Amino acid sequence: MASIIAAHGILPRRDGLVLIAPLTLFLLAMLGLPFAIDIVYALSHVTFENIRHPQFEGLGNFATVLRDPAFWQAMWFSLRFALLTATAQLVIGLGLAIFLAPLFALIPSLMAILMLPMMMAPALVGLMYRLLLQEFVGIVPNTWAAWFGDSPAFLSPGTAFWTLSTIEILQWTPFALLILYSAYAAIPGEIREAAALDGAGPLRRLVLIDLPWMAPTLAITFFFRFIDGFRVFDNVYVLTGTGAGGSTTTISIFIYEAFFRHNDIGVAVAASLILLALSFAVLTGLMRLAGGRR
């Protein structure tokens, strides 16, 4: 085999198929089989009582999901939440990466300290903030009331969205900081020095050199944080659950409620497949856009 690779630089077709066969079989077993079962469940009436003998009913579950106002409310909440948190994390992370770059060069261990928030489990973070923001015994509302005479209800339907977004931003901005600082530090210093000799100021160097150089990393970071924010479950469920009137129901919480609370497995799986199709469409569009720009 080694002599063939050395002589021709490529593998024969048969040997290549043999080498990828174990990985292909593994993916079929671990991904293909569960996906096939999901399709069967999505096209059937399934509860915990008849989970071994689902009753085929066609596209009824998909129609139920698409006609449910709660599903679209959850989609709208998840979309707003993901856009806001991903954008904020990208902007704040980029600003910190540029501002703290000289300090990171002098004290590399500082990065490890700033990474601590994202090392905590989201459910634990949600529980911690629930204790801090609890209306009657929480430290934050009591301190706020002592200073200003009254305290807002941080987890009420009117303010919960902004509270949840702030918590998500505080926990996951270090992730954006780590990725963006790595990209910023990889820009050759000679380019900045040449631009400075040509009279370009810091802002001009940022716009014409740093941001274009970091553009792929910025796009990837935004995409990762958007997907993670769109499918958020742990800390939102611990802090507010579905919220009053479903005001803080994310799409993941909607699927969880349909599966475990309403015992409607077919609807839950149908909603999951709709979410998978939408995610695949968005990813395909972004990949085509990136390919066109290249």
Rank of each mutant, 00 (worst) to 15 (best):
M1L: 06
A2F: 15
A2Y: 13
S3D: 10
D15V: 14
L17S: 12
L19I: 05
I20S: 08
A21E: 03
F26V: 08
A29D: 06
L31C: 10
L31K: 05
D38Q: 08
D38G: 09
D38R: 05
D38V: 01
I39E: 02
Y41E: 04
H45F: 14
T47C: 04
T47R: 02
T47F: 07
I51Y: 12
I51V: 14
P54Q: 00
Q55R: 15
Q55C: 10
F56W: 12
E57K: 11
G60M: 03
N61E: 00
N61C: 03
P69Q: 00
W72M: 01
W72V: 00
Q73P: 06
M75V: 13
F77Q: 03
S78N: 04
L83S: 03
L84D: 00
T87L: 12
A88W: 11
L90A: 04
L90R: 01
L90W: 05
L90Q: 03
L90C: 06
I92H: 06
A97P: 02
L100T: 00
L100V: 01
P102F: 13
P102I: 06
I107W: 15
I107F: 14
P108Y: 03
L110I: 04
L110V: 06
L110F: 15
M111V: 06
A112H: 02
I113Y: 13
M118S: 07
M118Q: 05
M118I: 03
M119V: 10
A121Q: 13
A121R: 13
A121M: 15
A123D: 03
L127M: 12
L127K: 08
Y129C: 07
Y129D: 02
R130W: 11
L131H: 15
L132I: 08
L133G: 05
E135Y: 14
V137H: 13
G138L: 02
I139R: 11
P141W: 01
W144Y: 14
G149C: 11
S151C: 10
P152G: 10
A153G: 09
A153K: 09
L155S: 04
L155Y: 09
S156P: 07
G158K: 14
G158D: 13
T159M: 13
F161C: 09
T163Y: 13
L164R: 11
L164N: 11
T166I: 08
I167M: 11
E168P: 09
L170Q: 02
L177C: 08
S182E: 04
Y184R: 00
A185C: 10
P188K: 05
E190N: 14
I191M: 15
E193H: 08
A196Y: 13
A196S: 13
A196V: 10
G201I: 01
R204C: 10
L208P: 04
W213H: 09
W213E: 01
M214Y: 07
M214F: 08
M214W: 07
T217F: 14
T217N: 12
A219V: 04
I220L: 01
F226G: 02
D228S: 11
F233G: 01
V236M: 03
T249F: 11
I251P: 12
F254P: 11
I255Y: 12
E257M: 11
F259C: 10
H262M: 12
N263E: 00
V267P: 01
A268S: 15
V269A: 10
S272V: 07
L275F: 05
L275D: 00
L276K: 11
L278G: 06
S279M: 06
S279K: 02
A281W: 12
V282E: 02
L283M: 09
M287R: 12
M287P: 09
G292C: 01
R293Q: 00
